[in-house]
């Protein structure tokens, strides 16, 4: 199986696969960060410097 894998040149796609994986992680984090869903905990923490 590995022989076929290597001979078919699938290995050449490894950098592409890994790049896509990291891009998916990056995009996921970006979506989470940009999420407009409000969290009371985050709102409260963000206000801390303004309390004193």
């Amino acid at each position: 199986m590995f022989r076929a894998l290597f001979e078919d040149g699938v290995l050449l796609d490894l950098p592409v696969v890994s790049m896509l994986a990291f891009f998916a992680l990056f995009a996921g984090v970006l979506v989470w960060t940009a999420s407009r869903r409000r969290r009371p905990h985050y709102d409260r923490m963000s206000q801390l410097p303004l309390e004193d």
Partner: peptide, 21 residues
Amino acid sequence: MYYFLPKAAGRPVYSYRLSIV
């Protein structure tokens, strides 16, 4: 920056989630 900028601007930090990341 995360303490004094909000104080000087009178506004909370833009994104707490982003600060975690």
